[in-house]
């Protein structure tokens, strides 16, 4: 129950499932778009790169993708934890092990998200 509350995202398996599907669409489209840009750009140097990321919509797109990636990763990492870090493997300390793992994953993802916001924000 406490574990349930620890889960920052999703109130049910359905929503988790939807989040994973939507976020993967966002991530794939972003990757495809970047590739397309690299292939079609006249030259891929610092200037061009900076210009691209100084565009407001590109910043929004990037931040959205980072959020999607973090959400996607959170659902996935939480699932992995609940598969392998269980009573079967760790006995009574399973809760502590899993809570630590979840806290670590959560913190890491939060840092990544914060960091990317920071980068985008300092660009303009």
């Amino acid at each position: 129950m406490i574990l349930g509350k620890l889960r920052l995202m999703g109130v049910s398996g359905v929503i988790d499932w939807v989040i994973q599907r939507i976020s993967s669409v966002v991530i794939s489209s972003y990757v495809l778009w970047l590739f397309a840009w690299i292939l079609t750009a006249d030259s891929v140097d610092y200037q061009a790169w900076k210009a691209l990321f100084s565009n407001f919509w590109m910043q929004v797109y990037t931040v959205s993708t980072v959020i999607a990636t973090c959400a996607h990763a959170w659902v996935g990492m939480w699932t992995i934890g609940s598969d392998y870090l269980t009573k079967r493997q760790f006995g009574d300390s399973a809760f502590l092990v899993r809570a630590t793992y979840n806290a670590f994953c959560g913190l890491l993802l939060f840092l990544y998200a914060f960091w990317s916001f920071y980068i985008m924000w300092t660009l303009t």
């Binding site: 049910s12 398996g13 988790d16 499932w17 699932t79 598969d83």
Partner: peptide, 9 residues
């Protein structure tokens, strides 16, 4: 069945 375990595992 909607929880993250019952079906969605």
């Amino acid at each position: 069945l909607k929880d993250p375990f019952s079906v969605f595992r």
